[in-house]
Each structure stands twice: as structure tokens, then as C-alpha cells.
């Protein structure tokens, strides 16, 4: 039995993540049990933990703190493979510019920046914000979660804020949208993506399949 806990703190679309994990579990022929829950005990019993998040980071952080999800995440990253997605990844960082400045959990060193209102590409063409749609991810480091995913595969992004870090060694994937942005981070047993693997069809499902089989080592 492979127990997967998706941390539910009332923010956004956990159905998508759960359905996608169920789907890849079935494909693998694995006996996968998924719980979508804010319950610390249930999450403590899981083999692997997914930390999702959509929407505004201020609201996410408020709920994280109200439901003691910060402690749950802290416990999870001490002991088991953790996959953080989108605002889940942003919440792991030190702080965010979103909604006028928000302290994040500070588990990973780096901060969350706004794309800006006058984002341009190399040809000086205006770029829309949010960065929404399918963009290519360059795999900057090998990682077990990239297994069977061709380099520069497209994943689905939707965000107006992006992660920046001085710690180059944390970065596992980069994408480009006016500027280089962190598409994925890998630190020990934590893997974090700015894109949505659960919405990225084949490439995304492959990443989730890899996560179901990952032991948290690199």
C-alpha cells in the first residue's frame, strides 16, 4: 500500500491532484490510497505528501497558519518525500511580494517575485501576465522525478508570481518567460514545481508516477 496524503487547507483544486495521482497509481498497478485532509495524524501516517496551493499566497498562508499546516509540512519534510505544487512551492520560500508582502514558511531559501506590468520578450513584444499555458522546462539537473520525461517538455503554468533563489544548487528546472524563472526545485526529499503536473497531461502524469515511486533520495 502506497499512502499519499494531499494536504487540504481549503485552498483550491485538490480534486485534480487526487484524480491524477489515482490515475497514475492505477496505471502502475499500485495499490494507492489517497487522502485529501488537513488532519496531522493522517498525514503523519502517509508514505508521501503532496502540498498543493492555488490562488493568492496571503490567503494560503493565513489558512496554513490557522490550521497549523506549517507544522504538518515541517514534520513531513523531516521524514518523507514531499511534492509541493505552484503556490505550495511558493509557500515553502522565505517571503513573497504578493498582496503587498507576505512572510512564507521559510523552509527553502528564496523569495517570490511579481512578473511586473511591463514584461517583454527578447523582441520587445509585450508578454501577458499571468504566465498562463504550456511552456518548456529545461531540466537543469538530473533528478529521479525527471525520469522518462524528455528535456524541454512542455508543462502547464498559471501564475503571476515566480520563485527566485540565489541557491543555484536547489534548481532542477528552468523555464523562460521574459526572464528565467524557476520551474522546479529539488532539495533532499522535497521536489517543488511552479507548473501543475496534474494538468500537464503526459509529461505531468509521468512526473507524478515518478513521485509515487520515489524514495526521497537523489
Amino acid at each position: 500500500m502506497n499512502k499519499i496524503a494531499v494536504i487540504d487547507y481549503g485552498m483550491g483544486n485538490l480534486h485534480s491532484v487526487a484524480k491524477a495521482v489515482e490515475h497514475v497509481g492505477r496505471e502502475l498497478g499500485q495499490d494507492v490510497e489517497i487522502v485529501v485532509t488537513p488532519d496531522a495524524n493522517l498525514i503523519a501516517k502517509a508514505d508521501r505528501v503532496i502540498f498543493p496551493g492555488v490562488g493568492a499566497i496571503r490567503d494560503c498562508m493565513a489558512e496554513i497558519l490557522r490550521l497549523d499546516v506549517d507544522q504538518i509540512v515541517a514534520d513531513a519534510i523531516k521524514s518523507k518525500p514531499v511534492l509541493a505544487i505552484c503556490v505550495g512551492m511558493q509557500a515553502l520560500m522565505s517571503s513573497s511580494e504578493e498582496n503587498g508582502g507576505v512572510d512564507c514558511l521559510g523552509f527553502l531559501q528564496g523569495d517570490v517575485r511579481y512578473f511586473g506590468d511591463d514584461l517583454k520578450d527578447e523582441n520587445d513584444q509585450r508578454l501577458k501576465v499571468p504566465h498562463m499555458g504550456w511552456n518548456q522546462v529545461a531540466q537543469t539537473r538530473p533528478h529521479p522525478l525527471w525520469k522518462d520525461i524528455p528535456d524541454n517538455s512542455r508543462f502547464y503554468f498559471v501564475h503571476s508570481y515566480y520563485v527566485q533563489t540565489q541557491k543555484q544548487e536547489m534548481i532542477t528546472g528552468l523555464t523562460h518567460y521574459g526572464t528565467d524563472i524557476v520551474a522546479a526545485l529539488g532539495v533532499d526529499n522535497i521536489f517543488a514545481t511552479q507548473f501543475h503536473p496534474e494538468k500537464s497531461q503526459k509529461a505531468g502524469l509521468t512526473l507524478l508516477r515518478n513521485f509515487l515511486q520515489w524514495d526521497g533520495t537523489v
Binding site: G12, G55, A56, P130, H159, S160
Partner: peptide
């Protein structure tokens, strides 16, 4: 948008 985020 405030409740669910502009992205959706």
C-alpha cells in the same frame, strides 16, 4: 478573484 485567485 480575492477568494479563489485570479488564475481561476
Amino acid at each position: 478573484a480575492e477568494r479563489f485567485g485570479s488564475q481561476c
